[in-house]
Design a binder for these strands. Structure first.
Lengths: 230, 230
DNA sequence: ACCTGAACACCGTTCAAGT
DNA sequence: ACCTGAACACCGTTCAAGT
């Protein structure tokens, strides 16, 4: 009889080799990223994981860029939007949402980087934007400013996550940062008087303190800067 | 007459195969990037350009990351800091400096991306930071806020350049953006009431208008947000 | 009609072996 | 002591050929 593929008596629901679909591929990609990091989620590595050749993936996925964008869209579901509904100050709740977003990016090495390159998309992203807009609205920020401000807020959150994400993980990046701090500290007061005057202040504060201030500053700027000449 | 670099009768200063040094490698890398874009500045391609094998480069350069950081440090010399010394409003002069920085990044595809990943360094970067700090000082922005604000300012400028840089160039990125605009426009007013309410406003304005507003907003936020709880 | 093996054209980085 | 050929271990993407 030699029954290889022995007795699939029910339907072929063995999870070993799932049918290739866009969704199945993205799901596998998310699993792979959780296990090995985004940098390992390549078309070839993923194909290997799915027991097929890389060419087969291209039937369902446009390429690496689309794949990474799809992972981001999916993972954005982990952002905690519930804190937006609390009853504290709207600014604090907004900061909490942005902080959750930052944390999601930060917790998945490489993801922040991907968020900077490919514009996010999907329902989770829309929900995030909606939540931020609602909080700005609640705070009385004029619509036009809120519309433009939401982009800046997400941009600084993303860039900050990318920066910190690059720093932890890679020991070289840590050295680069130390070198920069050193360079700022050593700056001659003749050539760089303001840098010298500010000194250690330039690199003061914990990442958390800085990020909290950044969110406050950008929210204030958004709230207080009219879109027509000012 | 045809006087093309007439007669190199002196020492072996034939530019064909310059001695390998860190500086010579970076100079070649900058030339290569100008000719073919950052994505082509790889250790292998650069070695080929320098008539050697990739292994030889590793004697002078730590790897691709350091190489790209060195290119960025060099190209930052193209930022126009002179407008800082004019006599208009300090905010306008600051915006001009930041715009010049954005343009330098934008004009070199891939460079903005590199600036987001590797923290910039070198004298040109220091000069840029110094100039921004001086303008914030002139504007009466408290030192502590200026110290943290300069980072945010450069961060949004860099991220904006990276975004626009990715969009032009790559036709897929353009499609992604259109898809996002479409998604925002189609958003149901039941699920996403604020997105629906703002509608086209979310993607209104030219990149220039948006960037000008962003700079104003972040400067205002920096100027108006104290570092201790606010 | 649909899928994919195999190839094309690249990468970064290391290290044993040469000069 | 200094440099590098050659190798290792990967990439993304395409397309002719198979089923």
């Amino acid at each position: 009889m030699t029954p290889r593929t022995p007795a699939p008596r029910s339907r072929r629901d063995r999870p070993a080799k799932p049918a290739l679909t866009h969704d199945a591929i993205v799901a596998a990609a998310v699993r792979l990223m959780a296990a090995e990091g985004l940098q390992r989620v390549t078309m070839r590595r993923l194909a290997q994981e799915l027991d097929t050749g890389p060419a087969s993936l291209y039937v369902y996925v446009a390429g690496t860029a689309e794949l990474h964008a799809a992972i981001l869209a999916d993972l954005l579901g982990e952002v905690d939007l519930a804190s937006a509904a609390g009853d504290g100050d709207w600014r604090d709740r907004l900061a909490q949402v942005l902080l959750s977003y930052t944390r999601v990016l930060f917790d998945h090495p490489g993801l922040a980087h991907s968020a900077l390159v490919a514009r996010p998309s999907g329902p989770h992203y829309l929900a995030l934007v909606e939540t931020i807009l609602a909080l700005l609205h609640e705070g009385g920020v004029p619509d036009g400013q809120a519309a433009w401000g939401v982009d800046v807020l997400l941009q600084v959150a993303t860039a900050t996550a990318a920066e910190q994400s690059a720093r932890s993980g890679d020991p070289d990046a840590e050295k680069d940062h130390d070198a920069l701090v050193e360079a700022l500290g050593q700056a001659s007061s003749r050539t760089y008087p303001r840098i010298a005057a500010l000194g250690a202040d330039l690199s003061s504060g914990s990442p958390q303190q800085r990020l909290a201030w950044i969110f406050r500053a950008v929210v204030n700027g958004t709230a207080g800067t009219p879109r027509s000449a000012g």
